[in-house]
Amino acid sequence: MSELDNRWSLPAGTSRASAGRRLRTVSLKRLKVRENMLAYAFLAPSLLLFGVFMFYPLLRSVYLSLYSTDPAGRVASFVGLQNFTALFSSGLFLDGIRVTALFALLTVPAGMLLALVLAALTHNLLRGKRLFQFAFSLPMVLSVGSAAVIWKFLFHPSLGMLNSGLELAGLVPVPWLTNPKWALLSVSLMTVWMNLGFNYIVISSGMQGIPDDMYESAKIDGAGPVAMFRQITIPLLSPTLFFVLVVSIISAFQSFGQINILTQGGPMDSTNVFVYSIYREAFVNFRFGTGSAQALLLFVVIMLLTLVQFKWVERKVHYQ
């Protein structure tokens, strides 16, 4: 726009040019104001919604975390940092973090490795590629609600397929969800299955981005499939793997649905992950103050984890 104006003004005479310039700056200014107004109008719906349902709640969380509340959610009295100190002294925070970290350790590496191996194996498949792609992406479209109910039946102590399969193989049935030693492992197994779809889709579309001539020239140099996987696929895929790592860890720290349906935090709090204990604190015990304090701590933990990953892990990522 402004370039056009300049071009028009060039051939004009000097006296007329100065008048024109004044006129032009006025109209330019008016255009600028109009563009500003229009831009704000375009942004208004998003900004309004974010203001009411994102930025205001964020501040209100901080406010609530400093108060105790009555069961109706009304603020009762200012307690300062007592909500936070209570979380630490009662062990609610540390237990939640411990269970959630264990859950992340059980689900993230296993889930990524499985998806990586499957994506690598289907990448150069000649027959049945689409069929396997469909199978491995399938868990992605199942919601956590239906997936967890399906697995609850698979885990059923007597009617479930898993125990009946073990018995057919002559093994002892496993108390999948009823034993504190097994419950988190079972929930993790279900979560690995549930996340397979997303991990597989992202990793295999990352693999499609690696140029074929890389592999061809490596083949000419006599590299075998394992060497090619380690020397070419992994380094070139590392940005995608890093993305999956960050997203998986965040989502592990935010899991709720499968816990609520499969174990409800039990047995003996062995699956009481962080978001589940926020839910219990705020919406079962109606302590919105401590619930908000917990939610803010979750925010801090996720922030720190993400920062650490960007600071330390991303060094190993190879960007082209």
């Binding site: 709640p57 969380s61 965040i250 939610a295 803010l296």
Partner: peptide
């Protein structure tokens, strides 16, 4: 994380 804004 969405959970932080959930209670308010």
């Amino acid at each position: 994380p969405w959970e932080v804004t959930m209670i308010p």
